[in-house]
């Protein structure tokens, strides 16, 4: 990756960190997800800055974005648009919904009914929308950044596994540490309002980075490690549902992207470990009380990060 691109990435990170204070790792992961062409799910309690992060990301990337607040009476047509009868031409014309944008912000995704949620499915996976038997392509790039409340909160419809699997990362921001919290309470020295954010990463740069991601090299030894990790999610005593091949692909791709924005030409185990919890946490199901991110961390800890490339005797 050229130094110029790297600089662009770094300065956009810097911008984001000025808005979301003290969450460097999560911010970096969020950006990695977008750069690896993945959809992002931010899950946390209300008021933790989910929407702010999503907003800021859209701003930094300088892409056109639309935001929909999901509610329980939201209908699919509210998202993807509808064909409206045009009296002039006496024909139906399609009025595209908010989903026709480069970044679609689905705020509080799990407050909508499953019907509305699944309307997003096709859009996210295929990059297209079908209405009345006609298919309309979505703009490229197309990202969904969704936020949701933890499922224990009232008035939520849990997302089914199939839909969760379509998000590359699931992040949660968590409470800020005391020092940062003090900063926020003070009114934020160095904290910038969202509308002050400038576009740093151009659309071209974004597309360029996206095309560079698959070129990051993966050694055999690293593949061994990734395979061990995947196998562990399927064999571990605490795991009920392991990682799907789509999940494994997402893990590989995001590791490459993470290596790329750190200026490496090949993937290291550290890269895999950095994205592992974000990729795997929402995709695996545990047998016992150990679930989600905690389970993913457990898997990560129980797999040897070195070794293999076995020579058969």
């Amino acid at each position: 990756m050229t130094t110029q691109l790297l600089q662009e990435v770094n300065s956009s990170l810097k911008q984001l960190n000025q808005i979301i204070l003290g969450k460097e790792q999560q911010v970096k992961l969020a950006l990695t997800c977008i750069l690896a062409s993945g959809h992002l799910l931010v899950e946390d309690l209300p008021g933790m800055g989910k929407t702010t992060l999503a907003h800021a990301l859209a701003k930094v990337l300088g892409l056109d974005y639309k935001r929909v607040q999901f509610t329980s009476d939201l209908l699919p047509a509210d998202l993807i648009g509808a064909a409206v009868f045009d009296a002039k031409n006496s024909s139906f014309t399609f009025h595209p919904g908010p989903v026709f944008s480069s970044i679609f912000l689905a705020d509080e995704l799990n407050r909508a009914t499953p019907k509305a949620q699944s309307a997003l499915l096709e859009a996210m996976e295929e990059g297209q929308v079908s209405v009345d038997g006609k298919t309309y392509p979505l703009p490229s790039p197309f990202f969904v950044i969704a936020t949701q409340n933890p499922q224990s909160q009232s008035g939520t419809f849990p997302l089914p596994e199939s839909q969760l699997d379509r998000f590359m990362f699931r992040l949660s921001l968590g409470y800020p540490d005391p020092k940062v919290e003090r900063e926020i309470l003070k009114g934020g020295r160095g904290r910038v309002a969202i509308d002050q954010i400038e576009q740093v990463l151009s659309r071209d740069s974004l597309l360029q980075i996206q095309s560079l991601v698959p070129q990051v090299k993966i050694s055999e030894t690293l593949l061994d490690y990734v395979q061990r990790l995947i196998a562990q999610t399927r064999q571990d005593d605490l795991c009920q549902l392991g990682l799907s091949p789509r999940g494994a692909l997402a893990l590989m791709k995001s590791s490459q992207c993470w290596a790329l924005i750190h200026g490496r030409t090949h993937v290291l185990p550290e890269d895999v470990q950095a994205v592992f919890v974000a990729v795997v946490g929402h995709r695996i199901v545990g047998k016992k009380e150990t679930q989600g991110n905690q389970l993913a961390r457990h898997v990560l800890q129980s797999v040897d990060s070195v070794g293999s490339r076995v020579i058969a005797a």
Partner: peptide, 10 residues
């Protein structure tokens, strides 16, 4: 039985 061996660097 000869157990499968790891590559030398490992």
């Amino acid at each position: 039985r000869k157990s499968a061996k790891e590559a030398q660097e490992h």
